[in-house]
Nucleic acid binder design. Structure first.
Lengths: 142, 142
DNA sequence: TATTATATATATTATCCAATACAGTTAAAG
DNA sequence: CTTTAACTGTATTGGATAATATATATAATA
């Protein structure tokens, strides 16, 4: 299990570099994003940039899929279980307003992150950072 | 969504009757059990008997699989998220001893329910009863 | 006791889906 | 500029898997 909290969340790697680090094709990384599992940074011209956190998240998600046999829908649902506005100090007004918790297996950062500002908030959210692997998820439930 | 709490948990239906009620083949019901998703009663001679709760649970699980696109591993993991010994008044010593929460996506009633007494306890457990559909699960997390 | 239903176990099927490959366009880098 | 990398979108594939079928044995029932 990889603990993402200690890792940097700074945009460091292009998709090519990230895919090499992970041993996954760039298309897979784009697929993970399209499926609402990760939320990589973007440059001004829409190029993806991955942080160490993102890389670890992808790795963990890949483990969930490969080792635990979970499919994408499962990961999405698991990542959507924790209500960030119950945990965050700022109550995460945007996400609560969007009632993301009640949406069906859509992580709030997918629903809320339509514009860049929301995306940036969600990307640094404790829920987004910790709800990557099952261990972190269970810790938050605890 | 079907709320299971109000339903009876008495062994009422044979597998044939239950499968007719659900529109599923008897084999599917056995499959759900083998996959650790349900825990039907048994007669002295090992015949399965299903309660209204069990029927509702199967229906909900089937919805998760059909509508939400979750696979069995996903349902198992979701049903394993809530630690019953944190919720139950009796602390559910057996389950905590078995450290079921840390086991990989194995609901505690699968791990704990090797003997009939444990099975019966688990079958009436609030966690087993409520962690059938995603709504009940989220309520418990709340 | 004869018939029907259920039990376990294994084999098969038919679909789904994660991952990859391809095609055409746009941005970055040397 | 020329080359390389990344972008979006669509098409394909290989493996997993939910569900069914088959076979044999045991229990319930009429």
């Amino acid at each position: 299990m990889i603990f993402v909290q200690a890792l940097s969340n700074k945009p460091l790697y292009t998709i090519g570099v990230a895919s090499e680090l992970l041993g996954l094709s760039p298309h897979s990384l784009r697929l993970y994003e399209r499926e609402g599992l990760i939320l990589p940074h973007r440059t001004a011209t829409k190029r993806r940039l991955y942080s160490d956190v993102e890389v670890a998240k992808v790795k963990n998600i890949h483990l969930m899929v490969q080792d635990k046999g979970l499919n994408f829908a499962a990961v999405r649902h698991l990542l959507s279980l924790i209500p960030c506005w119950k945990i965050r100090a700022d109550n995460c007004v945007k996400c609560r307003q969007l009632n993301a918790f009640l949406q069906d297996g859509q992580p709030c950062w997918v629903t809320a992150g339509k514009n860049k500002r929301n995306r940036d908030v969600c990307r640094d959210c404790r829920v987004y950072l910790n709800s990557t692997d099952l261990g972190g998820l269970k810790e938050m439930i605890y």
